[in-house]
Design a protein around this nucleic acid. Structure first.
Length: 422
RNA sequence: GGAGACGUCGCAUAGUCUGGUCUAGUGCGCCACCCUGCUAAGGUGGUAACGGCGCAAGCCGUUCGCGGGUUCAAAUCCCGCCGUCUCCGCCA
């Protein structure tokens, strides 16, 4: 939820943000209008309520005829209070409903839609397979050759976009996730294994039930949602709490399964394990003071790049355009690895600065010298199942074997090459 | 799944039976000041969040797990839900 005070004091900032995202700027005026009505009706209610309380005290002291007279007076007042309270509550609900529809105010992201990202840098050089004298195999062919990935049986058991990681494939995923977790711990993050089923309040608070609600699995019988990332649970972790951030950001590294319906992506990335309904992820999450958020965002990106360096992938960093930001994000950087068989970049990490948007919804504050205020929250990817795709393709050799990047060898018992089993 | 107990201002608790004097008391912790060779102890005062009005001082409202209800009036009575603990049942 955005800052109502900001919207009141600087509506043009919010209008401009709406414009940049391609959302409706008129929503700002609807909120201003609803806010005015709420305050009017709240003032009316509070005045009457104060009167009622004062009279109530007199009733308690009075007796006999005096009491009867007071009771007659107060009876009518009670009805008025009830009516005004209902009106005030309705006005508040109306305001909330409108306010919840405004996504976070964009901060520094380039304008435009999905294709209007800005490339911040490119790191490493894609291999020239023609020069090496062989055509690269795609990740599924490699994965099947290594007996590491089984999508056919995944589909048999669970349907399309499900898979088994088998043998060295399962070990490879664990290696990636363990390397990510170890790096996070070394940087001072608290490792966390989080719930993957959350309440509607938690899901709503993190901003995932807005425009992209179709992406989320819901267990109707139990009124719970399956998370698409441990960010959801980690954002809820300190809900309704007042934190002491005087010692710097609170950093958590969440390990969890992630579930996505992929409802709008029929026909996209259908082959292999690029886009699947279930995968695992190690996610960084940080609660920090709002002044520190941009710097923390830069640190998150640096930690993601450190992981990418460990697996020796060529990648680029993009600054996501305003129209492609999630509801909660004010700015987002993605790291995309080169995918040789598709001659394109594939998103491996994504780090978002949610400023105070999530914290307002989840009611996470920090204590300052003069009271409390919402904190900033940030999140970023340190490793996922999808990384297997890029690692297999980029480190493959002519015979179908795959060289293990040095950063992962300690997690695979020193193994240097994954050999095909056929 | 069944039975019972419980949920109060950071923590611990009083208050609920018998609705109004609860403007929620007390202890601990914390902050300020005082006292004091040092330390320990002691004294005094202060110590929630959110919202509205106001230039401000301040005034007012909301919140006793959450949501309804009864009543002139609810921490207190009634209903529903959530959570915690104990016991039983079932099961990894």
């Amino acid at each position: 939820m955005i800052d109502l005070r900001l919207l009141r004091d600087n509506p043009d900032v919010v209008r401009a943000s709406q414009q940049a995202r391609g959302d409706d700027p008129a929503l700002v005026d609807a909120v201003l209008d609803a806010d005015a009505r709420r305050r009017t009706s709240l003032t009316e209610f509070e005045g009457l309520r104060a009167e009622q309380k004062a009279l109530g005290k007199q009733v308690a002291k009075a007796s006999g005829d005096e009491k009867a007279a007071l009771l007659a007076k107060t009876k009518q007042l009670a009805e008025d209070v009830k009516a005004r309270q209902a009106a005030a509550n309705a006005a508040e609900a109306e305001l909330d409903e409108l306010l919840y529809r405004i996504p976070n105010v964009v901060e520094g992201a380039p304008p435009g839609g999905e294709d209007d990202y800005v490339v911040l840098k490119e790191v490493g050089t894609p291999r020239d397979f023609a020069a090496e004298g062989f055509a690269p195999r795609d990740h599924l062919e490699l994965g099947e050759g290594l007996a590491a990935v089984d999508t056919a049986r995944g589909a048999k058991v669970s349907g399309s976009r499900f898979y088994f990681l088998t043998g060295i494939g399962a070990r490879l995923e664990l290696a990636i996730l363990n390397a990510a977790m170890d790096q996070a711990v070394a940087e001072g993050f608290t490792p966390m294994i989080t719930p993957t089923l959350v309440t509607p309040a938690t899901m709503r608070g993190t901003g995932f039930l807005g425009a992209h609600a179709d992406e989320i699995y819901r267990l109707e019988r139990d009124d719970l949602y399956l998370v698409g990332t441990s960010e959801v649970a980690l954002a809820g972790y300190h809900g309704d709490e007042i934190l002491d951030l005087s010692g710097g950001p609170r950093r958590y590294a969440g390990w969890s399964a992630c579930y996505r319906r992929e409802a709008g992506s029929h026909g996209k990335d259908v082959r292999g394990i690029i886009r699947v309904h279930q995968f695992h992820k190690v996610e960084m999450f940080s609660y920090c003071a709002v002044e520190d958020a941009a710097a923390e965002h830069a640190r998150m990106l640096a930690w993601e790049e450190a992981m990418l360096a460990k697996v020796e992938l060529p990648y680029r960093v993009i600054d996501t355009a305003a129209g492609d930001l999630g509801t909660s994000a004010a700015r987002k950087f993605d790291c995309e690895a080169w995918l040789p068989t598709q001659q394109r970049y594939l998103e491996l990490t994504s780090t978002s600065n949610c400023t105070t948007f999530q914290a307002r919804r989840m009611n996470v504050r920090e204590r300052t010298d003069d009271g409390t205020r919402p904190v900033a929250t940030l999140n970023g990817t340190l490793g996922t199942t999808r990384w297997i795709v890029a690692i297999l393709e980029n480190h493959q050799q002519a015979d179908g074997s795959v060289r293990v990047p040095e950063g992962l060898r300690p997690y695979l018992g020193g193994l240097e090459v994954l050999e095909p089993v056929r």
